[in-house]
Amino acid sequence: MLRTFAAIVLKASPYAEGSAVVSFLTEHGERLSGVAKGIKKPTAKWVAAFEPLGMVQVSFFGKEQADLKRITRCDLRFSPLTLGHLESSLVMACLADLFDRVAREGVEDERLYRLLSACGRALKAHPDNALGILAYAEHWLLHCLGLLPHPRTCGRCGREDAPLALLSEEQGWCCTGCTAVDPSEALPPGAREHLRRLRTAAAEEAPRVDPADEAQRAVTALLRQRLLRELGGSLRSYDVLWRLV
């Protein structure tokens, strides 16, 4: 059976005899993997198509129940890669790692494809805001996973005007009006406003990283820790990012 999809490349891992197993996020939001033979050969025609976050048209051949199908064709349609921009390239690797963990074979979620394709185009347009786009993607991934309640109201008392104090896994966002918390451990003022910007902005308008914005720093760290904890711990691509940026 031959099946063709619009998809986004996630990861390529070495396989037997100079081949690679490549994972993709399809246009339907499902993770699919296939074997690309001869990818290591100097004459391989499709090596450039397997860069992380490349948007491709890919064809798989194999039995429906086969664990690994064969990739018969992979045409690159769009690449977010900006030559010479290290930070953007590192963030691309982080996003590929994240979506490779979140997406599932046999489970479709079109929101994942829409989110990753929007982030890829945003990285191409604004590579200097790569870290802001990464934080934007982390926020929306938590939302897609059902782990991020709406910050408009306090999950305990329902207030909308008091500053947010913390994020509780049981009750959601809790405010300072009903939650006793050490001031040094509470979210800085402006956390709700930053969350609102993340929720309402398009990927290309993702808030830029501002080292002086304490609320932004705190929210980004909180959401990143929550997401990575859900995925089983730190990812190698993140470790490389923090070593080099």
Rank of each mutant, 00 (worst) to 15 (best):
N129E: 01
N129K: 09
L131A: 13
L131Q: 14
G132K: 08
G132P: 10
I133F: 00
I133G: 00
L134Q: 12
L134T: 14
A135L: 10
A135R: 15
Y136A: 07
Y136L: 06
A137M: 03
A137Q: 10
E138R: 15
E138S: 13
E138V: 05
H139N: 07
W140P: 13
L141K: 15
L141C: 10
L141A: 12
H143Q: 14
C144I: 07
C144H: 15
C144S: 08
C144T: 10
L145A: 12
L145G: 10
G146P: 10
L147S: 15
L148R: 13
P149W: 12
H150C: 14
H150Y: 11
P151V: 06
P151N: 09
P151W: 11
P151L: 05
R152K: 15
R152Q: 14
T153N: 11
G155E: 04
G155A: 08
C157Q: 03
G158R: 03
R159S: 10
E160I: 08
E160M: 07
E160R: 13
A162K: 11
P163M: 02
L164C: 00
L164K: 12
L167R: 14
L167E: 09
S168T: 13
S168L: 07
E169I: 06
E169C: 06
E170H: 13
Q171Y: 11
Q171K: 14
G172K: 03
W173H: 04
W173A: 04
C174L: 11
C174F: 05
C174Y: 08
C174W: 08
C175E: 04
T176H: 08
T176D: 10
C178V: 00
C178F: 06
C178I: 00
C178K: 01
T179W: 01
A180H: 11
A180Q: 07
V181A: 05
P183R: 00
P183L: 02
E185M: 05
A186L: 05
L187W: 09
P188L: 09
P188R: 10
P189D: 00
P189H: 03
G190S: 06
A191E: 09
E193S: 10
E193I: 14
H194C: 12
H194A: 09
R196D: 09
L198R: 15
L198N: 12
R199E: 08
R199Q: 09
T200D: 00
T200G: 04
A201K: 12
A202Y: 15
A203C: 03
A203T: 08
A203F: 12
E204Y: 10
E205K: 04
E205D: 06
E205S: 07
A206E: 00
P207L: 01
P207E: 04
P207H: 05
R208L: 03
V209Q: 03
V209I: 05
V209E: 02
P211T: 02
P211R: 03
D213H: 09
D213E: 01
E214M: 03
E214A: 11
